[in-house]
C-alpha cells in the first residue's frame, strides 16, 4: 500500500504568525483519520497548507508520492487548482460555495477535473445516493439553502471530484447536533477505496470509534496520537 499523504516537517502560517510547527503525518490508502483540536490550534491551517492556501509554508507534502509542498512564501492559492487536479478535495470550513449557482451546477463544478467531468452523470448518481435530500434541491440556488443543506452541498461537491484524498474541515461546525451526526455518518458511508480521508473536528465524541486513527493537534503540533501507521501510539506520545 502506498502513502496517500506524507507530510514531513511542515511549518506554515500567515505573515508573522507561525501556526504549524514541524508537523509530520502519514496517511495510508484506506484510512480515515480524525484530527482533533480546539479552535485556533491549526486544524484548518493544516488543511489549507495541504491545499496550498496558507500565507507561507515550508516542508514536504507528498500526495501519492508527488511533492506538492515545498517552500512557498507568497501567492496563497496560486497552485491550489493544480493540487486539486492531482487528486485532492478540500471541503473547507466556510463551505466556499457559489451562492448564485444551483445545486446541480455545484455538483458539476465539483467534477471539474477532466476525468471526473466525463463521468459526471454516474458520479452524480453516486453522490445523490449518499445525500438523498439533495435530489429534490437540484434546481435551487445554493444561497437559499439552510446551513445543513449547504454543508451537504459542500461535501457532495468534494465527492464529485473522484479525489484520492478527501479533507473535511469541521463537518459539524454551525450545525445542530443531530444534523452534524447525520453528516458524519454520511462521511463514514463514503467508499474511499484506494483513497483516504482526513476529518478535522473539535468534537471528539463525534468521531470516536468511527475512524482508523485519532490525532490531537495542539498549538500547531500533532500530539497524543499516532502520526504514522507504523509508529505505535505511546511512542509518539512520549516523544512530545
Amino acid at each position: 500500500m502506498t502513502d496517500v499523504l506524507r507530510i514531513e516537517n511542515l511549518s506554515a502560517g500567515y505573515g508573522p504568525l507561525g501556526v504549524l510547527h514541524n508537523i509530520n503525518l502519514t496517511v495510508r490508502a484506506g484510512e480515515r483519520i480524525g484530527i482533533i483540536g480546539l479552535n485556533g490550534h491549526g486544524k484548518s491551517t493544516l488543511m489549507k497548507a495541504i491545499a496550498g492556501l496558507t500565507g507561507w509554508q515550508n516542508g514536504s507534502i507528498k500526495l501519492n508520492g508527488i511533492e506538492i509542498g515545498g517552500t512557498r512564501s507568497q501567492g496563497p492559492g496560486r497552485y491550489t487548482h493544480k493540487i486539486v487536479r492531482m487528486g485532492l478535495a478540500l471541503m473547507p470550513q466556510g463551505d466556499a460555495l457559489f451562492h448564485g449557482l444551483t445545486v446541480a451546477d455545484h455538483l458539476d463544478s465539483g467534477a471539474y477535473t477532466k476525468r471526473a467531468w466525463r463521468e459526471r452523470k454516474q458520479r452524480r448518481e453516486y453522490v445523490l445516493g449518499i445525500f438523498p435530500p439533495l435530489q429534490k434541491l437540484l434546481g435551487q440556488p445554493v444561497g437559499k439553502l439552510s446551513g445543513g443543506e449547504r454543508r451537504m452541498v459542500s461535501l457532495a461537491r468534494g465527492l464529485m471530484a473522484d479525489a484520492k484524498l478527501l479533507l473535511v474541515d469541521e463537518p459539524s461546525l454551525g450545525l445542530a447536533p443531530k444534523i452534524s451526526k447525520g453528516v458524519v455518518e454520511a462521511l463514514m458511508k463514503i467508499d474511499i477505496r484506494d483513497g483516504a480521508m482526513v476529518i478535522a473536528e473539535q468534537n471528539l465524541s463525534l468521531l470516536e470509534g468511527k475512524v482508523t486513527r485519532l490525532i490531537g493537534l495542539h498549538a500547531g503540533k500533532l500530539k497524543g496520537g499516532s502520526v504514522s501507521p507504523d509508529v505505535p501510539l505511546h511512542e509518539t506520545a512520549h516523544h512530545h
Binding site: A51, L53, G77, T80, H81, V84, R85, L90, P92, D95, A96, L97, F98, S109, G110, Y112, T113, R157, A161
Partner: peptide, 8 residues
C-alpha cells in the same frame, strides 16, 4: 476561492 478548490 471556491473555484480554486474545485480545480479552476
Amino acid at each position: 476561492e471556491g473555484a480554486a478548490l474545485v480545480g479552476v
